[in-house]
């Protein structure tokens, strides 16, 4: 069995990678091998970091999520293997976790799609020639700075914010000041599919969050738009293509590879935000009175699993419609 393995071709490059670093064999002194060693030296910081600060903690975290962790002050911690109890507790016993999980994920699905569409539209507008374009671009990129880290969630953590939001809603409903609420009433009275409109109005109400979350995406789309060669549009124009057709036949397919990048970025960005209630819940369990590290790890892993699932689904869907342009 082992003989067969060594004889089979070196598909993953393991053998080669080992031979590169062992002096005395035939490949050690070659240029290729020397180059490989230099290259590996360059990425060595990453390799070390990945092994010690990523793989190892991940491994510990998986074990922790499967066991009961007891912290001993000054001494470290004690672990007792329990199987999947923590996962069961996270999904079944914890009063808030699964509710927050479902809420945040549905919010992400709606806001994520809206973010992608919105940033694409804004990028198309910002790609046109008009006065004050530089200023507009600068302003649209501002949220990357102003809604990062602690600045993103701090104002919403306040009870006052919740109260004000509730009051504004109540006032808007009663007096019709709130435009989206008034429209909503109008449409629901006329009996048009209220479910669809509910989603739409939630989106309109969340437009501030969406714009604040789309800084990087706008710039990425913009760069894609700028890399399209103008000769394509000229050729289309000569052939009698209208601007609308040119948009769907040239602009959209050429930018579509960036759709995947932006979708993944949006999903990750959403999952890592501070104002995310699932993240808040995990932090409460970790640093709060419970100090239950096992449960917190299990919750993080469930959350990560959901994130990966979403990225995979998005990747599959988008990859079907993407057109890769070969230069």
């Amino acid at each position: 069995m082992s003989k067969k393995k060594t004889n089979s071709q070196d598909r993953w490059g393991f053998k080669e990678s080992i031979l590169t670093f062992i002096p005395g064999n035939s490949t050690f002194g070659t240029m290729r091998s020397r180059q490989a060693r230099t290259g590996f030296l360059f990425i060595l910081p990453f390799v070390l970091g990945f092994v010690f600060f990523m793989v190892r903690p991940m491994f510990t975290s998986v074990i922790m999520s499967l066991s009961y962790v007891k912290l001993i002050p000054g001494e470290g911690y004690d672990m007792k293997f329990m199987g999947f109890v923590n996962y069961k507790n996270a999904l079944g016993t914890d009063p808030y976790y699964n509710q927050y999980l479902v809420e945040e994920i549905s919010r992400m699905a709606i806001n994520g799609i809206a973010t992608i569409v919105m940033s694409f539209v804004i990028a198309v507008i910002l790609n046109q020639n008009f006065k004050g374009r530089t200023l507009a671009r600068a302003i649209f990129f501002l949220p990357v700075i102003l809604s990062s880290g602690v600045l993103a969630g701090i104002e919403k953590q306040n009870e006052f914010y919740d109260m004000m939001a509730g009051m504004a809603e109540a006032v808007g409903k009663s007096s019709g000041v709130n435009i989206s609420a008034a429209l909503q009433d109008l449409l629901s009275v006329s009996g048009v599919g209220s479910q669809v409109f509910q989603v739409l109005f939630d989106m309109i109400d969340a437009v501030y969050d969406i714009v604040m979350a789309s800084g990087i995406q706008i710039i990425v789309f913009l760069s894609g738009l700028q890399s399209i060669s103008p000769s394509l549009y000229e050729a289309a124009d000569v052939e009698g293509c209208t601007a609308w057709e040119a948009f769907w036949k040239i602009t959209f397919p050429m930018v579509s590879p960036l759709l995947l990048v932006n979708t993944i970025y949006t999903i990750i960005d959403f999952f890592m935000k501070n104002d995310n209630r699932v993240m808040e819940r995990i932090n409460t369990i970790m640093y709060g009175q419970q100090m239950d590290f096992g449960l917190a790890s299990a919750m993080s892993w469930i959350y990560f699993g959901v994130a990966i699932l979403f990225i995979a689904i998005a990747a599959v869907i988008i990859n079907k419609g993407v057109h890769y342009y070969e230069d």
Binding site: F59, M286, Y303, A307
Partner: peptide, 16 residues
């Protein structure tokens, strides 16, 4: 590294 949220391993890093 880009995809994994650091929150996933925060407990383990804390202990480490």
């Amino acid at each position: 590294l880009i995809i994994v949220p650091p929150q996933t391993i925060q407990t383990a890093l804390y202990v480490q």
